Computed example of a mutant assay.
Amino acid sequence: MSRTIQATILRKQVAAIVQAAGSSPAEAEQVAANLVLANLSGHDSHGVGMVPRYVDAVAEGGLKPNASIRVKLDAGAMLAIDGQHGYGQIVGVQAMELGIARAKQNGSCIVSLAESHHLGRIGHFAEMATSQGLVSMHFVNVLSRPVVAPWGGGDGRFGTNPCCIGVPLAGAQPFILDFATSRVAQGKMRVAHNKGEHVPTGYLIDEHGAPTTDPGVVVVPQSNGLFGALMTFGEHKGYGMAVACELLGGALTGGGTWHRPADTARTVLNGMLTVLIDPAKLGTQAAFEQEATAFIEWLRQSPPGAGFEAVQIAGEPERQARATREQEGIWLDDATWREIVEAGKKVGVTVD
């Protein structure tokens, strides 16, 4: 049955499974904390529901516990990094820490990260950068079963390819724009399917290329053994952004793009191109702070539209969700919890 679990308990449960799958205690705790933070932030698609897939990926050999980054190129303000199939929650942080240090030193840094296992919520990396006063831009591709159709196409050809931009705001919480280039994240379809829900029209096409509201078409094989596909957001515009993420996050990083038939592997690899900028080194710090603050205030002065209480800034819904869920706990549907329990059993951990 579905249940609501406090974040502290859920972290321990997830860490126990990740550790039993082969990770060191420190790595397991960091992975668990990152996944639970995604749930707390309202992004259940990138939260603890990923644990069953991670356990399977370790068993496949596509996810390597206790792996660390390998720096392939160090050109000062440019870094090319190999994630070596390590947990994205680990190697992604390691890559960002290097990039942040270089951006603080040189004013900017371009970080190319390839061969990382699933990076999770990309906004986490933008939050790392903005906490140090840096602007960050992230372009990510996904090497896994293609689940998003190109504009004008009738089947999946690429992943949900997220894009993220973080901007620090003086005396305020940062602007954190983090979105999948599909109409909705694939993980959200898994959550909706597990809940037995349908989704709005325009999100999906079925295995025949026809519109559908059944999220199961991208979660489980259909009668002909094929899957449906997600649509991109914003029609041709979102499609263009998705292609840009594939070219920058996949081709430019050297991690590779998807151009082969789908498979059933549970491993999810990501490539991420990150651009970091230090406004203080750019010489525009004072103007940047003043103009950014003035613009945000200008936006907030807009009268609420029908059905809205106030204008919000990207990142605010996540921070509000964290405050609420820290108090009330994290709700998990029955199917997701059952999958986590089964994942624990695979590695000898009993979760109740």
Rank of each mutant, 00 (worst) to 15 (best):
Q89R: 13
I90E: 04
I90A: 05
G92S: 12
Q94E: 15
E97G: 08
L98M: 05
G99P: 01
I100E: 00
A103Y: 03
Q105C: 12
Q105P: 07
N106I: 09
G107Y: 00
G107T: 03
S108K: 09
C109Q: 01
I110V: 14
I110K: 00
I110M: 11
S112P: 05
S112R: 04
E115Q: 15
S116M: 05
H118W: 04
H118T: 03
H118Y: 02
H118L: 06
L119F: 12
R121Q: 10
R121Y: 02
R121C: 07
I122F: 02
G123R: 01
G123D: 00
H124L: 08
A126V: 10
M128L: 12
T130H: 07
T130V: 07
Q132N: 08
G133I: 00
M137H: 11
H138P: 03
F139M: 08
V140N: 00
V140R: 03
V140T: 11
N141P: 05
V142H: 08
V142K: 07
L143Y: 06
R145T: 10
P146S: 04
P146D: 07
P146C: 06
P146Q: 11
V147I: 15
V147W: 15
W151V: 14
W151C: 14
G152T: 10
G153W: 00
G154Y: 08
D155Q: 15
G156R: 04
G156K: 02
F158L: 10
C164G: 08
C164T: 13
G166W: 00
V167Y: 11
V167W: 10
P168D: 08
P168V: 06
P168K: 11
L169M: 12
A170W: 07
A170G: 03
A172Q: 11
A172D: 11
A172C: 03
Q173G: 10
P174H: 03
L177C: 13
L177V: 03
D178K: 10
F179S: 08
R183H: 12
R183S: 14
A185R: 02
A185H: 08
Q186W: 15
G187C: 06
M189G: 02
M189F: 10
V191I: 14
A192M: 07
A192L: 12
H193R: 13
K195C: 13
G196D: 01
V199I: 02
P200K: 02
T201C: 09
Y203Q: 06
L204T: 04
E207K: 12
H208R: 15
T212R: 00
T213M: 06
D214R: 11
D214K: 09
P215H: 10
G216V: 04
G216N: 09
G216T: 11
V217M: 13
V218F: 06
V219D: 06
G225S: 04
L226F: 14
F227A: 09
G228N: 02
L230N: 08
L230M: 14
M231P: 08
T232V: 14
T232Y: 10
F233K: 13
F233Q: 14
G234T: 01
H236V: 08
